Amino acid sequence: TLFEALYDYEARTEDDLSFHKGEKFQILNSSEGDWWEVRSLTTGETGYIPSPYLAPV
């Protein structure tokens, strides 16, 4: 399942991933609570992002 960003987000740590509203992601790991490890389909980068900022496509 692909997810889309509902809002912009600016990374706060080196493990976070900055992204823009509308960017699409592949979920790599969603078992860590509200922070999911994802791969951006736009940039190819991986990192953690807050799951409340995402919605299924």
Rank of each mutant, 00 (worst) to 15 (best):
S40W: 02
G44A: 04
E37R: 12
F19C: 08
E10Q: 13
F3M: 08
T1Y: 12
F3P: 00
E37M: 14
F3L: 05
E37Y: 15
E10H: 11
E4V: 15
Y9V: 04
G22Y: 05
E4T: 08
L17R: 03
W36V: 07
Y53H: 06
T13H: 14
S18I: 04
E37C: 14
P52E: 15
Q26P: 00
D34M: 13
Y9D: 01
P50N: 09
N29L: 05
D8Q: 04
G47I: 03
G47D: 00
L17C: 04
T43E: 01
W35L: 11
E45W: 10
L17Q: 03
L54T: 04
E32F: 13
E10W: 09
L41W: 06
T1M: 14
L2K: 04
Y9A: 02
E45F: 11
T46V: 14
K21H: 05
S30M: 14
A55R: 12
N29R: 08
I27A: 04
Y7M: 12
P52Q: 15
S18M: 04
E23P: 00
Y53K: 04
I49V: 15
T1N: 11
Q26H: 10
S51H: 08
E4M: 13
L2N: 04
L54Y: 03
T42H: 10
T43Y: 02
I49E: 00
S40V: 06
G22R: 02
S18Y: 04
G44N: 08
G22A: 03
D15P: 05
A11T: 05
Y48L: 11
A11D: 02
Y53M: 11
Y53F: 11
D8A: 07
K21W: 04
G44P: 00
A55K: 13
T43S: 11
I27W: 06
S51V: 10
D15N: 14
A11G: 12
Y53S: 07
A11W: 03
S51N: 08
D8R: 04
R12C: 13
K21E: 05
G22P: 00
E14V: 11
P56I: 08
N29P: 02
T13I: 06
V38F: 01
G47R: 03
P50A: 09
V57W: 08
G44W: 06
P52R: 15
H20M: 12
F3A: 05
Q26E: 13
S51I: 07
F25W: 01
G22I: 00
E4P: 00
V57F: 08
W35C: 10
G44E: 04
S31F: 09
A11N: 05
A55Y: 10
A5H: 00
D34A: 11
T42G: 07
D16L: 11
E23V: 03
L17T: 04
R12E: 12
N29G: 10
L41R: 01
Y53P: 01
D16A: 15
Y48T: 08
Y9L: 04
P50M: 12
S31G: 11
T1F: 12
G47E: 00
D15I: 12
P56L: 09
S40F: 04
A11H: 06
P52S: 15
D34Q: 11
T42D: 10
A55E: 07
R39I: 10
P50H: 14
G44M: 07
T46I: 13
T13L: 10
E45N: 12
E32S: 13
H20G: 08
F19H: 01
A5T: 04
G33F: 09
F25K: 00
T46F: 06
Y48M: 12
W36I: 06
L41K: 03
R39A: 04
D8K: 04
T13G: 15
E4C: 09
H20P: 04
G22S: 04
T46L: 07
Y53N: 05
T46Q: 09
E14T: 12
L2S: 05
S18P: 05
R39Q: 08
E45I: 11
L41A: 05
T43N: 06
A11Q: 06
G33T: 13
T46W: 07
S40N: 13
T46Y: 07
I27R: 07
T43G: 02
D8E: 07
L6T: 06
P56T: 06
T1V: 13
H20R: 14
N29F: 07
T13M: 11
A55C: 07
V57K: 03
I27T: 03
D8I: 02
Y48R: 14
Y9I: 03
R39W: 06
R39C: 06
E23Q: 08
A11K: 10
K21D: 01
L41T: 07
E45C: 13
R39T: 06
K24M: 13
A55V: 13
V57Y: 08
H20C: 11
Q26V: 15
K21S: 05
L17I: 12
G47N: 01
L17Y: 06
Q26K: 08
T1G: 12
S40Y: 03
S31D: 12
S30A: 13
T43P: 00
D8S: 09
L28C: 05
L54H: 03
R12H: 10
I49K: 00
W36G: 00
L6E: 03
S31P: 08
I27Q: 03
K24Q: 13
H20S: 13
K21L: 05
D16W: 11
L17V: 07
L2M: 09
L2W: 09
I49H: 01
L6S: 04
T42I: 09
I49Q: 00
L54N: 03
G44K: 05
G44L: 07
E10N: 10
F3R: 03
W36Q: 02
S18T: 09
E32Y: 12
L6K: 08
G33P: 14
P52N: 15
E23S: 05
I27C: 05
V38L: 01
S40K: 14
G22F: 05
K24P: 03
Y53I: 06
R12P: 11
G44Q: 06
E4G: 02
F3Y: 14
E37L: 15
Q26N: 06
N29Q: 07
E32W: 12
D15E: 12
D8V: 02
L41V: 09
A55M: 10
A5L: 09
I49D: 00
S31Y: 09
L54C: 05
E14S: 13
